[in-house]
Amino acid sequence: MNVSATQSSDDLALTAVVKDAARRQLAQHGASGLSLDAVARGGGLDVSAVEALFPHRDDLLTALVVDAYDASGAAMEQADRAAADAGAPAGARLLAVARALRGWSFANPSEFTLIYGSPVPGYHAPQDTVPPASRTPAVLAGILRSALEGGELTPPRRTLPGPSLLRPEALALFGGAPPAPFSDIVERGIALWSSLIGLLIFQVFSRTHDSVRDEAAYFDQAVAVTAETVGLVVPLGEGDR
């Protein structure tokens, strides 16, 4: 259930209390352990007040999912604007937004787990979550489009074989398929996006701490290596972190 923009200030304040209590429940018990009764107790509220805003647990979960996608997407967008305004090349912009997403993920591990961890049993995300979820790939697509138009991409050594496997909406997000030699840049961009999320899953869930001495530095290196698959150079100069 979406929170209406016409709600009173009291309703908005109550919604904030409910969401805060729900996030504490996420941190303690995970999304599968979330319940309206527990949220009401955690927020010092009557369960009927919670149900008036979110009739079902899934309504509350959806609101939390939307908030998480919006917050993480906003962090990336802000970082990209700052880098672009400073005249940074596309590779530096990519590193800036990746770092911003990493910073948000470590600051909000429960919310990160909600949107990128294991699916919640019995929960099926509604269409309302699609636009917020699209903010992350939209930032990456914008950077790649800018790099393409600015001549900052190196042509791939080989194009991906076979016909395009893309859905029309993926091409639309990028602004259409570019001509050769960058005709498969959208497919490569999806690989970049999935690699970024996979790297964050490894780091947030402590899968790399036993393997590398400096996880933040390794993150930057991994972003740079992955960016090479789309023909983009990420600067990793001394003191760049």
Rank of each mutant, 00 (worst) to 15 (best):
V47Q: 12
S146T: 10
E152L: 00
A40N: 11
P178T: 11
R23I: 07
G117N: 03
A52K: 15
I185G: 02
L26G: 01
A172R: 14
G30V: 07
V234W: 05
A92P: 01
Y218H: 15
F202C: 13
G91N: 06
E215V: 11
P126N: 13
F54V: 08
E169V: 11
A79M: 11
I185F: 02
G43T: 05
D128I: 06
Q78N: 12
P55W: 08
A98L: 07
R99A: 00
D11V: 05
V65I: 10
G43M: 02
S8Y: 03
P137H: 09
T154F: 05
P235M: 07
V39F: 06
E169A: 12
D20V: 02
P126R: 13
D59P: 04
L114N: 10
L26I: 04
L232W: 06
G91T: 03
A133D: 05
F219K: 01
P156D: 12
G42V: 11
V97W: 02
I197G: 02
R145F: 03
A82Y: 00
T154P: 02
G237Q: 08
A125T: 14
R102F: 08
P132N: 09
G231E: 11
A138G: 10
A107Y: 00
A180T: 15
S146K: 05
A16R: 10
V17S: 12
L140S: 01
S72L: 08
V233A: 08
E215P: 03
E228C: 03
V223R: 02
G117F: 04
S183K: 13
A16P: 01
A141V: 07
L36E: 05
D214Y: 09
Q25P: 04
D37G: 12
I197M: 07
T113A: 15
P131S: 04
G151W: 03
L61W: 08
T136L: 12
S134W: 05
R158M: 09
D59G: 07
L101C: 05
Y218C: 08
V17W: 05
A5V: 15
Q221W: 12
F219G: 00
A222Q: 13
Q28Y: 09
A49I: 00
R23W: 03
L166F: 12
A27N: 09
V186Y: 02
V120G: 05
V212Y: 06
D10R: 10
N108Q: 05
